[in-house]
Design a protein around this nucleic acid. Sequence first.
DNA 1: CGTGAACTTGAGATTTCTCAAGCGGGGTGG
DNA 2: CCACCCCGCTTGAGAAATCTCAAGTTCACG
Lengths: 246, 246
Amino acid sequence: MTFSPGSTHPGQAELPGQFLVRAGLENEDRAALLGAVSNIETKSRGSCVRPQGEQPQSLLILVEGVALAARLLPDDSRQVLALYVPGDVMDGQPVPTRTTFELCAITDVSIARIPHQVLAKLLSARPNIAFALWCESARNMAIQQEWLVSLGRDSRARLAHFLCEISERFSEAGLGEADHVAFPLTQTHVAEALGLSVVHLNRVLQQMRREGLVAISQGHLHIVDRSALQKVADFDPAYLGKAPNR
Amino acid sequence: MTFSPGSTHPGQAELPGQFLVRAGLENEDRAALLGAVSNIETKSRGSCVRPQGEQPQSLLILVEGVALAARLLPDDSRQVLALYVPGDVMDGQPVPTRTTFELCAITDVSIARIPHQVLAKLLSARPNIAFALWCESARNMAIQQEWLVSLGRDSRARLAHFLCEISERFSEAGLGEADHVAFPLTQTHVAEALGLSVVHLNRVLQQMRREGLVAISQGHLHIVDRSALQKVADFDPAYLGKAPNR
DNA sequence: CGTGAACTTGAGATTTCTCAAGCGGGGTGG
DNA sequence: CCACCCCGCTTGAGAAATCTCAAGTTCACG
């Protein structure tokens, strides 16, 4: 998989089929939204999709790959604020405002752009689209809220919760099976998401591995004992819009 | 100030003047929204406005007083997720979903209810209202994002940031002057918001008091050295929709 | 092979927590 | 009117969680 980074192939979108169906968007509206895509561009892994502090010109939708949003702090540390999988709207704000975080590609990604100028017309012409984007945004808010709660707990619960969420979202996005999903994140990424040092994160992870809860290797996450893991995490997938605990 | 807890006086809302103007709502739409208020009720301080896990029947707007949203954890601890001041929409979701947190009155409060059933019609009839509520929700998300970043930092920065935000929001809501606002929270509330133990919070607070950054007494917060405090907090009020650092 | 990034391990320093106790004001019942 | 009690605040001290620094290992890649 070798993209020339930053390349652009314009025109008809090949957005993933499930895009915005979660939010209940119907045919005609979906078509209108797809028509508003100005281009789909690719970025190579590790590159920055949109720097912190920029005034965004387009709404960005992740089509392929995994990406994250992170805040750069004055002491050069980073706090990861969100993870994105294919189908996710990255930073869907009703009114574009100067961003307080950067968007980074974790793997090679492809991203659909919808210029805010075009979008604005669409929003007033088609209230359903606005409503669907609001729903998406509300879901991201629910996820963020879980992260907030998680950060208040100890490192073990934090990591367990993170892994539970990853496995749900990644498998739903087609990045693997339920108990065996792709895991392109480095431990540094995870540490920055959980607000832990890499060293400590590593130890907690090993501990959980030893206990037979999870295993991470070769860029894959294997949930060995899901119910035990969910218990450690106090995880209930309802906030992701899924059925209650299975 | 003695309300009979839970009392309800129906009819014409006396919503605060600035309500939803931040979100750019115009006369006619505002009137429609006000007309949808089924009643305004009062709750006494310390009481629970809406328990965790309930299916909400109405949108709640805080008219008077201070309230918070908190998640109850299985070990009986709590994580405060949000603070509300008059004019705030408490948990404004596009589609009402089972709540994952409780709403509590910190002071005596009065709250306007808009039944979701009524609201739904309003949203489709008047897209501007949906848009305004989305904007409100986006603002709450930005605040929550700041809390998330804050939780990743040390206790000193966390507290400083919290106090900066409080002073901005409370004074904007008419709960005091810029450097001298009402502070009805107990140290336990603050500790639960910041994910710290009360004991540790107390020590950090005293330290900041000794350094001449802030003073809290008699239910009032006094920002003694705002610029120093903002520096400790790495605080930029832009996310609240205010002008950049002064 | 040589190199760099990610992961791992050790050990001491620091932050934060828990438990325990004392203080002080406001409200309440006697 | 007084005594008591509860809640919120404060302080001390030892325990636990987490961090930082430093170094070693592994593995993919050129």
